[in-house]
Design a protein around this nucleic acid. Structure first.
Lengths: 352, 352
DNA sequence: ACCAAATATGAAAACGGTTTCAGAGAACTT
DNA sequence: AAGTTCTCTGAAACCGTTTTCATATTTGGT
């Protein structure tokens, strides 16, 4: 392992000059730069990250803190971050908060200690902790929230439009003739959970249907909560004729619950999900689902992070919003004879 | 951020002593140790990982290099590693080789540069590169292969028993009356791919069925290859009456291909998979699958890694083999009227 | 009581970079 | 031609640990 000294010697310059070539941190004569670059090449020299990090208090590592590592949706997101990081020669430390704010806090501490250059986080709530954030800010470490927003005005966010996504989902159900539409959403403390609920209500209202709190259930994005809440909704009389479920895992739970009762989708109850991955075609029914561009969310967040790393002085917060798309399957098939069409209820829905 | 100097001052000792307390690297008087520990506590001091790593050429980070980050099976594995790392206060750098040996090589270089303390890898072939391995070895960085074996005798492996898994899978099909059993396996350069094929043949032979190379297809563990190879097998005349597919992603492809032809599982063709995740119950058929304990594979590998980190002098290679279990679903339902039962073919199969 | 051996501690060197500071030349002004 | 500015470069300090080496202190043996 050659070090900067070797390179300097080989090129006949001081280590300071080598460092400058390495980081473009000061002008270096073209001819000298060439020599240094040749030496680097010849010795296949790579700077020691630890030494770098020690002196500059920054590493070439970014932290990625997701809320559920086993959720296929986040897999895509992780993949997006990973790819972009590789391109930019950063490494990724992956952490799994498991939707637990304390664990999230703990991991943020770890990342702080590791001197990561930046953090991408799927926040478990709107609050990452003032104390924690202050420390990152002091060190100039940018934080990007992805998939969910965070209150702090210094934190960029990369999201898809939940209002629109939920609007399309619910509008689609209405257009297909469903009237008694239940929702299973996520915690109010998570922006996606709240916004999807809010948009669900708004969409119902603009279609002339009065929201009914009995039909609204709040889960925690797990299969189990999807199962339990679906049971509750199926117990209602009259039973809802459709469910809008705000994430993929809860949808899995819901499908299981529906199946366990011997009910059929969509005949007994229609389903529209969010981020549902159709793993294999030959499901009994394909599931209609709002799809967020998972991988793009990840790569965009990473891109924004690297932008900030290059331009640390940028002050203004940025919120990047990607468009979700409604993927239509059989789970929300039009009720026969309902004669309902999009627009009949006075809503224009773009269904791609 | 307090540093070791502050702690030393606070405790009235030298930084050397603090370091010794920190690492248990030399005896320290009990009374002094207490004082130092109190100081550490008081200042909530955490050693700077970069400085540590710089000096000792080791970090508190381990590298985890998986072959397909979007495969749910590996998600479980990652989760297992993650959990164990957290317990031991290590962080995990996650890398995705995407089944590409060059990319694997590249990532191993990155991990080497990052001075990771150890590496857990799902190898894309039996060869990680002599050069690369030598460097890690020189620095005393242990490498653990997981899910797949590697030739190098210095590398521990944590696996599940593919021979047995495939034997149970194929034996189960035979016992259920299937005669013309095709296989879609992984590359020969990957131990799991090879062993499952080998065991498939052996099992057929011991059941008195002659292996037929026409029925053997080698894919690359992707959905696409599963699709393509299934098409090939379905084109045969007579058509195979059952398929044993050596991984989950290829099974997804296979199911799609079967579905696309309007065929039914298991009536037209039976399926036994490997590591198939049944996401939602209400599939048309549940898929019979050999299940490897993904999470345990991960945590066991991590455990072994930390063992090695604590006892660097251990020389002997260890191979830890976990038992897979056959999870029986409808996709391999007994052929009606076949009257076949396990044992009839002279094989004793344990089906848990 | 004295010397040898064992134990506990501190001073200082190292690890490999980045960054500050000062100075040497080169390029412009006047 | 002399002064001024600008561009480039090198020496040396510094980041926060671990580790070596030397030394002070204690223990043990006789």
């Amino acid at each position: 392992m050659s070090n900067i000294q070797d390179v300097a010697k080989h090129a006949g310059v001081s280590i300071a000059t080598v460092s400058r070539v390495l980081n473009d941190s000061a002008p270096v004569k073209d001819e000298v730069r060439k020599r240094v670059e040749a030496a680097i090449e010849a010795l296949s020299y790579r700077p020691n990250p630890a030494a770098r990090s020690l002196r500059s208090n920054k590493s070439r590592i970014i932290g990625l803190l997701v809320s559920d590592i086993q959720n296929p949706f986040f897999m895509g997101l992780i993949r997006g971050v990973e790819d972009e990081a590789l391109k930019n020669e950063y490494s990724v430390i992956l952490c799994n908060s498991n939707e637990s704010p304390p664990r999230e806090r703990q991991y943020l501490d770890v990342l702080y200690m590791e001197r990561v250059a930046g953090v991408i986080v799927v926040p478990t709530s709107e609050n990452l902790g003032e104390e924690t954030l202050k420390r990152f800010r002091e060190r100039g470490v940018p934080i990007i929230a992805v998939d969910r927003r965070v209150k702090d005005p210094s934190i960029d966010a990369v999201l898809s439009d939940s209002i629109r996504g939920a609007h399309e989902a619910v509008g689609h159900l209405i257009a297909n003739g469903y009237k008694r539409i239940g929702i299973i959403t996520g915690p109010e403390s998570v922006t996606t959970g709240r916004e999807r609920l809010e948009s669900y209500r708004q969409t119902l209202i603009s279609a002339g249907i009065a929201p009914n709190s009995e039909l609204e259930r709040i889960g925690n994005f797990t299969i189990e909560s999807g199962y339990a809440l679906t049971e509750q909704l199926l117990d209602l009389t009259p039973r809802p004729d459709a469910l809008f479920i705000a994430n993929n895992m809860m949808t899995l739970g819901a499908l299981n619950a529906i199946h366990a009762r011997g009910l059929r989708v969509p005949d007994d109850v229609a389903i529209v999900s969010y981020d549902y991955t159709q793993w294999a075609e030959p499901g009994p029914v394909s599931i209609t689902s709002v799809m967020q561009p998972a991988r793009e969310l990840g790569s965009t967040a990473a891109l924004r992070l690297f932008q900030r790393l290059r331009n640390p002085e940028v002050r203004s917060r940025q919120e990047i919003i990607l468009a979700p798309t409604l993927q239509i399957g059989d789970s929300s098939r039009s009720i026969e004879g309902s004669g309902a069409v999009a627009g009949a209820a006075g809503i224009a829905i773009k269904q791609t």
